[in-house]
Computed example of a mutant assay.
Amino acid sequence: MNEKSLKVLEQYEIEVISTRRGRGSYICETNLGKKLLAGCGSSEKKMVFVNRVLEAMRQKGYLYADIAMENREGKLLTTDREEEACILKDWYEGRECDTKSMADVEQTARRLAQLHRMMYLPPEPESDDGNYVGEDLQEEFLRHNRELRKVYAFIRKRKQKNGFEILFLNCFRMFYEQAQEALEQLRGSGYAALREEMCRRGALCHGNFNQHNVWFPGRNQIFVGNFDKCRYDVQETDLYQFMRKIMEKQEWQQNNGYRILDSYDRERTMGKQQRDYLYIRLLYPEKFWKLANQYYNRKKAWVPEKNREKLEALISQQNRRNAFLKTIE
């Protein structure tokens, strides 16, 4: 977003006192409190759905809901001069969750479990709610595995290979076998029944739960924002997303993994099906697939050095990752 985007504020019934830059956004001090003006890649209908979710959570006691404000036309999305869709929503500032601090990480895991207890909203009849369902994980794994094989075949045919490509070929079998194992375990688990039950009950997940969407406004206060990827799904998807990021950054230290699981479990106890699901998600080598996908969708003639370094780090962590997975299997 640029300063021209601030003109969209004129389309709201609001008095703007001051503005300053945030991360890809503008933080606005207004007569109605602190607001965030940010670009939005979701549709108007999706944001109406997200607002319904947040309103329901607020009624259940979540005080930090970043609910979007309607403009003068009664719409949640407003187009700026660059034809970019923007949204203006309630905002609460604080420091971002520190991935190196287990105190922050444990508090965040507890907050996530608390949110999951609130995040139930049965789809309304004759609405689009039923469209906001997460992809079937079996289909996702199948697609990712096909893509991994495609990248492997492409690199093998290249006559001159760079450092990333040589490293990829050398470690491919190790990660691909794990990807296949995760798929087979998913097929033999109770995932289909769990997913169906969660969606029937109206269980929702944040959809993009990571440290960048978690802030600490004050002591023992945690603000979780940016629910625009919210959807009906197995809620432990959020725990997986957060846990994988933290464990990668902390090089799969077993004790820290147990502390995350224990912190979540104290607020919302997981059953066997949920634990099996979480294990299978952690077993799948998603970071390896992401690196392969980034490589294939960029110009193959040039691979950033950072991608090779990321792959080296992934390989170096594999033994510790496997050791942790074995303890929670």
Rank of each mutant, 00 (worst) to 15 (best):
P122K: 15
K299T: 10
R231I: 04
N256W: 06
Y132K: 06
F223K: 06
Y279W: 10
V224D: 08
V133L: 02
E73N: 13
Y232T: 05
Y240A: 05
D262N: 07
I155H: 10
Q318G: 00
G218Y: 07
K287N: 09
A65T: 15
M270N: 05
E124T: 11
K245D: 08
Q241E: 11
L148R: 00
I155K: 07
V234H: 01
L194T: 02
C171S: 14
C171V: 14
W302S: 07
D262A: 07
N51W: 03
L278E: 04
G61N: 02
K150M: 09
S42M: 11
E309K: 15
S18P: 07
E139H: 03
G188H: 13
N226F: 12
L169P: 02
A179P: 12
G39H: 03
M174C: 06
N220P: 01
V8N: 05
R244K: 12
K60S: 03
Y152W: 10
N145L: 02
Q221R: 14
L137C: 04
L9Y: 10
C230M: 09
Q180V: 15
Y191F: 14
Q317E: 13
Y64P: 10
H116L: 08
A182N: 06
L36T: 00
E236M: 11
W289H: 13
G61V: 03
R149L: 15
V151T: 11
V303Y: 05
E184K: 10
E165K: 03
F175L: 01
L88K: 07
W252L: 04
D276Q: 15
Y279M: 04
Q178K: 15
A109I: 00
M174T: 14
F216I: 09
R117E: 15
G218K: 14
V234Y: 01
L54T: 09
T78A: 09
N307H: 13
R21N: 10
T30F: 04
K299E: 13
E286Q: 09
R187T: 08
K290W: 06
M174N: 11
I328A: 08
L167T: 06
E147C: 01
K35H: 09
D90V: 01
G257F: 03
E84S: 10
G134Q: 06
E329I: 02
Q253F: 10
D276C: 12
R231K: 15
R72E: 12
L204F: 12
M270A: 11
H206G: 05
R173K: 15
E248H: 14
Y92C: 03
Q211M: 01
L291A: 04
R23L: 14
D265P: 00
T78H: 07
R268M: 05
M174P: 00
Y296I: 06
D233G: 08
L54S: 11
R187Y: 02
N71R: 00
G190H: 03
Q235E: 13
G202C: 13
K89N: 01
P304S: 09
E55W: 10
G61M: 02
L282C: 03
E248P: 00
N131Q: 14
V8M: 04
E147A: 09
E82R: 12
Q250F: 00
Q107L: 14
V151H: 04
M47A: 00
G218A: 15
L278F: 10
I17S: 03
Y120Q: 09
L77D: 00
R143G: 14
N255P: 00
N213E: 07
K34C: 07
Y12A: 06
G190F: 01
R275K: 15
G218D: 14
M102T: 10
L77T: 04
M270K: 08
Y258C: 02
Y296N: 05
P285T: 03
